[in-house]
Design a binder for these strands. Structure first.
Length: 250
DNA sequence: GCGACAG
DNA sequence: ATCTTGTCGC
């Protein structure tokens, strides 16, 4: 398990670890989550920001009442950045601080909404999937930009969405991502997530399940959490806390 | 070999 | 991600 606690890995080792961890993902949501009535009482937004030219990592977590979307508790952690940003290896840079922030919460998180991708990642282990797996909590990712896969342009109405599809990769069959197993292998594609129009006249966001979550649930939760801005409330509030430089209290 | 590339 | 003011539009 020591390797799991060592966030300072070479890219080659990190990639190998991602492949291993991806096989441990489950995309089955908790029983009953198909109905909003059975959803948990809270959802926790997670986001990371930087200062000092990236030398310092700031992790923010905000727990909201899932029914009212009112914030209940928030935590902010600052710590030295451990690893450079490498596309595809984002979680190794952001998770240490995020985990530290989550551990400060008085009320244990029940479900995580992370700024970044879930399984919509080349090796199906985006930051939301990695964090969900680490915490063993239902988790989904809401990203502002595409990392991999292709998609059509979603409709213009708020709530419109299209599927994010990618070529089939190694863990996809076991994860149940193959869109149509009956087709010739050459033409099979994996369904990674949804490209959702969260606001009219604004670029869409990329929603994907992370862990213990399926696409339907991830989409339902995200749409439920939409407020007046592009980002759903949990991520928006965490983003605001992680990005905005705090006024010095004195 | 040439792009693409979450935060 | 971050450095940054005003400005256009619902």
């Amino acid at each position: 398990m020591s390797a799991l606690h060592d966030w300072s890995l070479t890219p080659t080792v990190a990639v190998a670890l991602q492949r291993e961890l991806a096989t441990r993902l489950s995309l089955i949501p908790p029983a009953g989550w198909t109905s909003p009535d059975a959803w948990p009482a809270t959802i926790t937004g997670v986001d990371i920001g930087f200062e000092e030219e990236g030398a310092i990592t700031r992790a923010a977590v905000v727990t909201l009442d899932l029914a009212t979307l009112e914030p209940l508790e928030q935590r902010l952690v600052r710590q030295p950045t451990r690893m450079a940003y490498i596309p595809g290896l984002l979680s190794f840079r952001e998770l240490p601080a995020a985990i530290a922030a989550l551990e400060l919460l008085q009320q244990p998180p029940e479900c995580l909404m992370v700024d970044g991708h879930g399984i919509a990642h080349p090796r199906r282990l985006g930051v939301a999937a990695h964090l969900g797996l680490w915490c063993d909590l239902p988790a989904l990712g809401v990203a502002k930009k595409r990392l991999c896969g292709k998609h059509d342009e979603p409709g213009e109405e708020r709530g419109d969405w299209v599927a994010l599809m990618d070529r089939v990769r190694e863990p996809d069959a076991a994860l149940g991502l193959i869109d149509d197993p009956t087709r010739a292998k050459r033409e099979q594609r994996s369904r990674l997530g949804a490209v959702l129009r969260s606001r009219i006249n604004v670029k869409p966001v990329f929603v994907s399940p992370g862990h213990r979550m399926d696409l339907e649930t991830a989409l339902a939760l995200t749409r439920h959490c939409l407020g007046k801005t592009k980002l759903p409330e949990p991520t928006r509030l965490a983003d605001q806390l992680a990005s905005r430089r705090l006024k010095q209290l004195r």
